[in-house]
């Protein structure tokens, strides 16, 4: 098990997250994809920490988990609010900022 394997895995997870972010319409799935990408980054941090025998990466990873948790609470609150006002969580419907003329 070399660090390369962990890095490959992190890249694959990030790619899946990116793909999910761009092609899915469901807000929850988009949220999950973002979480997946953040986790893959966390994995990379942990991997380098272990590989270089340094604790910096691990501390960073721990801090990021805290950030992700707080972000999750805000994200979920927004989703709940959007659902309450529009009765949908399809991102295609949220186009209030579009300039109609230019299309």
């Amino acid at each position: 098990m070399t660090p390369h394997h962990f890095l490959y895995l992190a890249t694959i997870l990030f790619g899946i997250g990116l793909l999910g972010l761009t092609i899915r319409k469901n807000l929850f799935v988009i949220y999950l994809s973002i979480e997946l990408m953040l986790s893959s980054v966390n994995l990379i941090l942990a991997t380098f920490s272990r590989a270089n025998n340094s604790q910096d990466g691990s501390i960073m990873a721990l801090l990021m988990i805290a950030v992700i948790a707080s972000e999750a609470s805000i994200f979920l609150a927004i989703i709940v609010y959007l659902y309450k006002s529009t009765k949908t969580i399809d991102t295609e419907t949220f186009t209030n900022l579009r300039n109609e003329e230019s299309i």
């Binding site: 990116l18 972010l21 761009t22 092609i23 899915r24 319409k25 988009i30 991102t91 295609e92 949220f94 186009t95 209030n96 900022l97 579009r98 300039n99 003329e101 230019s102 299309i103």
Partner: peptide, 20 residues
């Protein structure tokens, strides 16, 4: 300008893609 304007589609997924 029109061509640039059409990229401002108000579609969240595209914005995310641009950012990435």
């Amino acid at each position: 300008a029109y061509n640039f304007a059409s990229s401002q589609s108000a579609n969240v997924r595209y914005y995310a893609l641009y950012m990435i």
